[in-house]
Amino acid sequence: MKDFIFLFRSHERELQKLSPDEMQSLLGKWSTWIKKLNDAGKYKFGDRLSREDAKVVSDFGRVVTDGPFIESKEIVGGYIIIQAESMDEAVEISKQCPVYNIKGMVEVRTGAN
């Protein structure tokens, strides 16, 4: 078993478009999915990331900007670390991810050995 990191990227504006009911149902989809992974012994940990109070620090801290919210770009809305046998299996797992409901994407990464 190896660890894989899933980074969830989505557009801020896709989230903004959701109705309260759709947000609640999205919350439910995440909950169900994470539970399923956990019950299968594949989930290690993870969290959503706050969209407020984000800063981008660059050039040895000389440049600090509020960010990374640029209209056209995806932002990382959360991450989880899961366990899988192979990259293929990790990719298979990622296909069930609720982030697709808001036209988002999953970046599947593995740590270098």
Binding site: L27, R48, R51
Partner: peptide, 16 residues
Amino acid sequence: IVQDTFLKALDEWGFN
């Protein structure tokens, strides 16, 4: 403000 409140709930309530 109401929309922002729900978006914050999505963030802070995390996955579960």
